[in-house]
């Protein structure tokens, strides 16, 4: 990009290759813009999750397009779909295998509250087994709603006291 005024940007001749910032800001900036999702696709919401990954909605704009099918490499579990009691222990097991810091998005009515499945077989909200950061309403939610949830989560991560937690761990 060509601009007329070159004085407004960062100038290494003036500042000597050093940027002063808060550790929290730097760490959170990295975390928010490379949030790799663990696609826990359990039902029809997973179809919308796939749409979010496609070109039209393009979750890559937020640095979260790298769907990791290994919990060891992922930061944010997107629980997309109905969690049955039979599946619930496996969801928790995969959450436990993710490295901290980690976040959870409950995508859709089923993952958030059991949805329309008020029955003997369905976990009544994935927050009974894992701590959820963002809930998305909808059955299934529009892809834009999931992108909004991701932005909300990024805003939440930006406000975290990352360096203090790192030092106290």
């Amino acid at each position: 990009m060509v601009t007329a005024n070159t004085e407004l940007g960062y100038n290494s001749k003036v500042e000597g290759g050093v940027i002063v910032s808060r550790a929290d800001a730097a760490i959170n900036w990295i975390r928010t813009n490379s949030m790799w999702p663990m696609p826990m696709g359990l039902a029809c919401c997973a179809i919308e999750l796939m749409a979010v990954g496609g070109a039209r909605f393009d979750i890559a704009r937020f640095g979260a397009e790298v769907m990791r099918f290994s919990p060891r490499q992922s930061d944010c579990m997107i629980v997309a779909g109905t969690v049955t009691y039979k599946m619930a222990p496996q969801v928790r097991r995969i959450y436990d295998q993710m490295c901290a810091p980690k976040w959870v998005i409950a995508m859709g009515a089923c993952a958030s509250s059991g949805g329309m499945y008020r029955s003997y077989s369905t976990l009544q909200g994935v927050d009974r087994i894992v701590p959820v950061d963002v809930y998305v309403s909808g059955c299934p939610p529009r892809p834009e709603a999931l992108l909004d949830a991701l932005m909300k989560l990024q805003a939440k991560v930006r406000a975290e006291p990352a360096s203090r937690r790192l030092l106290s761990a």
């Binding site: 009691y85 619930a88 222990p89 928790r92 436990d96 029955s119 003997y120 009974r128 087994i129 894992v130």
Partner: peptide, 12 residues
């Protein structure tokens, strides 16, 4: 997992 989370199968 049941012990870790304290969750159980409930009457919906």
């Amino acid at each position: 997992i049941a012990e870790e989370t304290g969750a159980k199968v409930i009457a919906a």
